[in-house]
């Protein structure tokens, strides 16, 4: 930090003054993070815009992300809560690594960096698992010839999967478990059960009577799973934004893990010990916390709100 005496020094314009009190590398990392923060806020506000536009039929995240490894049935929010916890935890181990670096404690830096890398890998793996379930689909849906998505319901207003529709309530599963169905099978089952009807997804989706429902399916087709053009959960924009935002964030996490590994390797080699400081750990630490910071917002706007 420059003292008052130094500021008055004739060298003031010659580089002696350090108005931001931060070193070049750290400052450049911060500038990158600022621009990245604006990029992510652009994505999230665009998501908000689309969501406002299709408010009534926008898929409700709790009805989309309901799986938890090893547990059957609906577990809304639980898995993503675990992912959030893992990322916060790896952020904590990163601060511990930076803290140990300031004290030149090589053993502790090595240890905490390793935990940070493990946390990051678990997070990326969890995201891959969630993508897999999102892409392979859950209950299946009807897509009309106007590309509107409709879900199957029974007389009690319960959402039915294709498995329950085709095999009957007793023999079917609440999730299709990877079984694929043909339009003819679904159509025959829907025709046979006169109390069953189709309804739009979302908070205020419209209900259709049995005759209209059968007509929609005859004109349209069935969808199982989600990709960029068809999405059984609802609006295809939902899947587009899901893939794009969590994908872009996941790519950040992946690059973070790679960069963390490079730094970890250098710690093992003793590079920073020879250099006399662990400022590189502090710089990647900033990036890693930023990844956590973005996830805090993605978690809120994609899963909670």
């Amino acid at each position: 930090m420059a003292s008052t005496a130094e500021m008055k020094d004739e060298n003031h314009w010659g580089g002696a003054s350090r108005p931001l009190g931060a070193r070049y590398g750290k400052l450049m990392m911060w500038f990158f993070l600022l621009s990245d923060a604006l990029t992510f806020s652009g994505f999230l506000t665009a998501y908000g815009l689309m969501r406002f536009k299709y408010e009534k039929t926008w898929p409700i995240a709790e009805n989309v992300f309901t799986h938890f490894p090893g547990i059957e049935g609906d577990q809304p929010l639980l898995y993503v809560a675990l992912m959030t916890f893992i990322l916060i935890m790896s952020s904590v181990t990163m601060v511990l690594a930076v803290n140990a670096g300031e004290k030149m404690n090589r053993g502790a830096v090595t240890n905490w960096m390793l935990w940070t890398i493990i946390g990051g890998l678990i997070f990326v793996g969890s995201q891959a698992w969630e993508w897999y379930h999102f892409i392979s689909g859950d209950s299946g849906a009807v897509e009309t010839d106007h590309a509107e998505i409709l879900h199957v319901y029974n007389e009690e207003g319960e959402r039915l999967s294709f498995s329950q529709l085709v095999h009957g309530m007793e023999n079917g599963h609440a999730s299709n478990h990877g079984e694929t169905f043909t339009k003819a099978e679904v159509l025959a089952a829907l025709k046979a059960n006169e109390a069953y009807y189709l309804q739009e997804p979302g908070k205020a989706g419209e209900k259709f009577d049995h005759v209209a429902s059968v007509n929609f399916l005859e004109q349209g087709d069935i969808v199982q799973g989600a990709n960029m053009t068809h999405n059984e959960y609802g609006r295809k924009q939902f899947a587009n934004f899901f893939f794009f935002i969590t994908g872009f964030h996941g790519f950040h996490v992946f690059s973070g893990v790679v960069i963390n590994f490079v730094i970890f390797y250098n710690i093992l080699l003793g590079t920073y010990e020879r250099r006399g400081h662990y400022r590189m750990v502090e710089k990647v630490g900033l990036y890693w916390h930023f990844v956590d910071l973005v996830w805090v917002f993605v978690f809120t706007f994609f899963y909670l709100v």
Partner: peptide, 29 residues
């Protein structure tokens, strides 16, 4: 961090992000 650094980091984010959100949601309506 020192005061100047705080301003450098906070001012752009706290002005630009609310502005972006406001303008996009208003125009989007």
């Amino acid at each position: 961090e020192n005061k100047a650094m705080k301003y450098v980091l906070y001012l752009p984010t706290l002005i630009l992000i609310p502005y972006l959100t406001f303008i996009l949601l208003t125009e989007g309506s």
